[in-house]
Design a binder for these strands. Sequence first.
DNA 1: GCCAGTCGCGAACACTGTTCTCTCTAAGGT
DNA 2: ACCTTAGAGAGAACAGTGTTCGCGACTGGC
Lengths: 246, 246
Amino acid sequence: MSSPIPRRERLRQATLDEIKRTAHAQLAELGAGGLSLRGVARAMGMAPSALYRYVESREVLLTELAADAFGSLADALTDAFDAAPADRHMDRWLAVARAHRRWALDHAIEYALIFGPQVPASSYCEGRVAQELRRSVTVLFRCMSEAIEADLVDASHVDAELTPTMRASLRAWSHDHGMAVIGEAEMAVCLAVWTQLHGFLALEVFGHLPMALNDPEELFDRQMADAFAQAYRQEKAAGPRAPVGG
Amino acid sequence: MSSPIPRRERLRQATLDEIKRTAHAQLAELGAGGLSLRGVARAMGMAPSALYRYVESREVLLTELAADAFGSLADALTDAFDAAPADRHMDRWLAVARAHRRWALDHAIEYALIFGPQVPASSYCEGRVAQELRRSVTVLFRCMSEAIEADLVDASHVDAELTPTMRASLRAWSHDHGMAVIGEAEMAVCLAVWTQLHGFLALEVFGHLPMALNDPEELFDRQMADAFAQAYRQEKAAGPRAPVGG
DNA sequence: GCCAGTCGCGAACACTGTTCTCTCTAAGGT
DNA sequence: ACCTTAGAGAGAACAGTGTTCGCGACTGGC
């Protein structure tokens, strides 16, 4: 009468969800290194060995949590993207970049999990981790790709410097992201902007920025605006100063 | 006749060095998570408990190794800086950036150790870790600060956008690095360039760059050249294309 | 009602970091 | 030369960890 899926499987999914929920909680308060299967089992009132009916190992549980974290980030970015005005590309980019930063600061441990070096690198090439990673990166790139479609970006100076090898790499990459419309030079600009964003956040979240920079928010805004404006000169006058209203 | 330091202390220093050497080897092949004090003791033919005469805990051993890694990086950067021609600032910057990348790729695990999120963040504010970190960052900044002293950099467009808060932060930071000569806008440019460098390397070393970019070297060079040229326009024509000879 | 597949548990193994206690050696002072 | 003492090392032990295996119990489908 109720569900077409058998009860057995429904129960299994329920406890699997509870495992992931509890693991997520432990991750958030103890960090990736502090998450222990025994701890999760203890919090759930289960025997440690019982967890292995649901989870293959601690490592795959961590990559599962990493995939979830990527999904959460991608959602946050998508929300910011959709909420921003579609015609002011610079403002929209800044909104997305700020959403990325806010998510990173609010979920520092998950950020460390997905952008730090612990999760096995192979996961990033396949499976749900790769899929959700692509989804979040795609949001970032859409900021620029839509500006490109509106013919507002001038990447000719970059285009002139591209070697054939780089062209091939960039074309393959844009194909991966289903953005075959974009030229190689524009893809290079996307990469540069992403690089800058990630560099700032990695330094800030991992605590490598000097304490003297007690409030990096404005610096972040400036860098993101400049990075975007480097390729996207038309809106520059309208952009950087007080761009999104925060 | 030989050494003024007592023999006792000399022996102690010797085994302490051996501990750090063995730990470094284990770190390099097993990663930071795989390094175990018991393993080090086993490799040295010692009892695990004996290690505690020399090392307070596994964590402080790791931060010690982190400090060493920062020192090694700083040395590599300094070498590249000194070997480059002092009058071609763009080329020198590219040489230093490439040295940074090479060190990161050749010492991926140590790179993960010092720029990943594992080492307790407090270490970066004091002690030898902070000192060696500053030393490496200072080399990067000298590339631009010397160009600034030669009056080759135009950061007026950045300067116009700086808020008082950002000015204060940047001034405090440049004071930390003993570069009080540099203006705040130039410091902001230094930070942007560092951010870009770190973002690219973190993505590449941690395996987050898509495999489609099978040879990111040229892209790296392009990004570094563009980042530097963003502030340093005079030498741009002479710079990016085939800049250092590799 | 039986049967099989699933679930959960307890015990166990092989590890880990860390502490405590014990012994022995060797340096230093008298 | 002797004795004291600080230090080095060893071994056992405690509290954890991930993971495996075998045993019961339960339960959905025939």
